Structures are given as C-alpha cells and as structure tokens.
Computed example of a mutant assay.
Amino acid sequence: MKKASVILSSALVLGTLLAGCGNNNEAANTAATNAPAATAAPEATTAPAADAGTEAGAYQDGTYFGTIEADAETGWQTYALLTVEGGKITKADWNAFNVNNAGDLKKKVSEDGKYGLVEKGGAQAEWHEQAAAAEAYLIEKQDPAAITVDAEGHTDAISGVSVHVNDFIAAAQAALAAGPAEVGPYKDGGYHAEGEMDAESGWKSTVDVTVAGGNVVAVKFSGLNAAGDDKKQFSIDGKYGMKAGGASSEWHEQAELAEAYFLDNKGAAPTLDAEGKTDAISGVSIHVGEYFTLAEKALEGAK
C-alpha cells in the first residue's frame, strides 16, 4: 500500500517478513503497495565469532526501530524494536506488520493460532515462540552480527529456531544504524472499525490500522458486503468494474491513493465536500470521508 520513512518520529512514522517455515493463511495474494521504505543497514548478516558480542555501554540509551522490505507475495514487513538501557540492549521485539491487510501484528496472528507454523509447516514451535528465542539470544550477545546464519538465512546457533533469522538480523542492524527514535503515542497492535451497511450500494466501509513502535505503519480502506466479500479484493479481482463505468481507475487503486494520503499526512483528513469526496487527492473520485472518520475511531482503541 504505502511508502514512508522507517525512522520513528512523532504520531505516524513508517517502519515482511520472509515466512521462514510455513505460509501465512491471512496474507493477501496481491503485491505489497503499503510498504515503508526499508531502513539502510549493513549488508553483512553472518557473524564474526559468536562470542564476540558488543562491548558494554557501546549503544546510546533509547528506543531503536528498523525494518526490511516487505515481502511482495505475503505482504509481511519485518521490523525490530530495540530498547537500550545503560548502553546495553535490554529488550528486543522481532515482529512484522502486513502492508496488504494491515490489522494484527505477526506475533498476535501466531499467538492466535492463525499462522500455523507447527500445524501447516511441521515446525517444532510456533513463529512467536521462535521469535522470542531469537530475541533472547540477541540480548545475550548484544550484537545482531553475532547470530551466525547459512546461505538461506537459517541459524544453528539458537536452539529451537528453524525459521529464517536473517531478516531479524537485518532489521536489528537497521534499527541500531538509524539511532534512537521517538516512540509514538499509540499502543502497538491492530485496530479495526466499520460503518453501517449502505442499503443502496450493499457495502459497509471497513478500516484496519496497524501500530508498531507507537506509530501507524499500515492502513487498509475496504468494505464488506452481505456475502462477506472484501471490497478491495473484489475490485482487484475485476468484479467491481469502476473503469467499465467510466472511471479513470479501479476502486482499489483509488483506495490505495487515499491510504497513502492518510499515512503521508499522519491521519489528517483532506478537505471534503458534502458527499465525502475530495479534490485534494489526485486520481481519487470515490467517497473517502468515512474512511478517515473510521480510522480515527479505530485508533481510539490504541490510546
């Protein structure tokens, strides 16, 4: 869906994870279009000696946030959120948000049994459990480069971890390279809001928002009909037919432009007319007013 900076700033800053083992049953099949730009990080992901570590006090105290590029197939974008106290990494969060669907963070999806690494991928532990082991190892070693990996991004250094860890390494390196960042005002997680069913169109508007590091990092404007169809996917599949009706672009393409505006303007709504339309977003002729209102409603749960 959208692009943005990966360094956390104030209210809204942007920040996929290679699935490792197993597939995410919730990921959309469309290419990621909501992805923030990945933070620049050192290329090396293999370590020097595993016990090399980082000298105590080497890091400036604060919170660090970094991402890698979103996976075009699954939509997951990996990030690392690190806390440094007394010059040492004391907390590490390896997670991901979905730039196609927004909604819950990857750990929550795994904790809720919806990622299925054990059942569907045959792994010995679920994704969030393996992530926790990798996080603990980083805190012990104090250096992302101390996690040795093979050519495929796997490691034998961390017991019980069979997923690719190279993305965690890269995101952690990116976070440390970016320096301390400001944590945003919201609680991390996925938030949802929906409007009333429109009797004329047969659709009700839905908004999903994802917060990471206290800031909004992904948003999805869509809808549902009585059959349970997702409006954005309905349009992607060519079933909505706006261009056939004379529009310059399809509904999902215009929705993505509105999402980009939302992220770029930190949730501020454009100037709207009485019908909820705007001239402020080039290429958008659909009603967008309700989406900005619903996004604000969704974020009430994140305060």
Rank of each mutant, 00 (worst) to 15 (best):
M1Y: 01
K2M: 11
K3G: 15
V6Y: 11
I7H: 03
A11L: 04
V13T: 09
V13W: 04
T16F: 01
L17D: 14
A19P: 14
G20H: 03
G22A: 10
G22L: 01
G22E: 03
A32M: 02
A32H: 00
P36N: 03
A38Y: 00
A40N: 06
P42W: 01
E43R: 09
A44W: 00
A44Q: 14
T46Q: 08
T46P: 08
P48A: 13
G53M: 05
E55F: 05
A58M: 06
Q60S: 14
I68A: 04
A70M: 09
A70G: 11
D71E: 13
E73P: 05
T74E: 10
Q77L: 12
Q77K: 04
Q77E: 15
T78I: 03
A80K: 08
T83A: 10
V84M: 08
E85T: 14
E85S: 12
G86C: 05
G87H: 03
I89W: 01
A92E: 05
D93R: 09
V99G: 12
D104Y: 01
K108V: 15
K108G: 13
E111I: 05
L117K: 07
V118D: 06
K120L: 13
G122A: 08
A125I: 03
E126D: 15
W127E: 11
H128W: 13
E129C: 04
E135I: 07
I139Q: 11
E140V: 14
E140Y: 03
A145R: 08
A151M: 07
A151I: 01
A151L: 03
G153C: 02
H154I: 12
D156A: 05
A157K: 02
S162L: 03
S162R: 04
F168Y: 13
Q173M: 06
A175E: 09
L176W: 06
V183L: 08
G184P: 10
Y186R: 03
K187V: 14
K187S: 12
Y191S: 06
H192F: 15
H192E: 14
G195Q: 05
E196Y: 01
E196H: 05
E200R: 05
E200Y: 01
S201L: 09
S201V: 04
G202S: 09
S205H: 10
G213E: 12
G214R: 02
V216P: 11
V216E: 06
V219W: 00
S222A: 14
L224Q: 14
A226N: 05
A227V: 01
A227I: 02
G228A: 02
D230Q: 06
K232E: 13
I236L: 12
I236P: 11
G241F: 00
K243N: 13
G245A: 15
G245W: 00
G246L: 06
S249W: 00
H252D: 11
Q254K: 07
E256P: 01
E256K: 08
E256I: 10
A260W: 03
D264A: 15
N265P: 15
A269P: 10
L272R: 06
A274C: 03
E275G: 00
G276Y: 02
K277L: 12
D279I: 02
D279R: 00
D279G: 11
E290D: 15
E290T: 14
E290C: 02
Y291D: 15
A295P: 10
K297H: 04
K297S: 10
K297Y: 04
A298Q: 07
A298E: 06
L299I: 07
E300I: 02
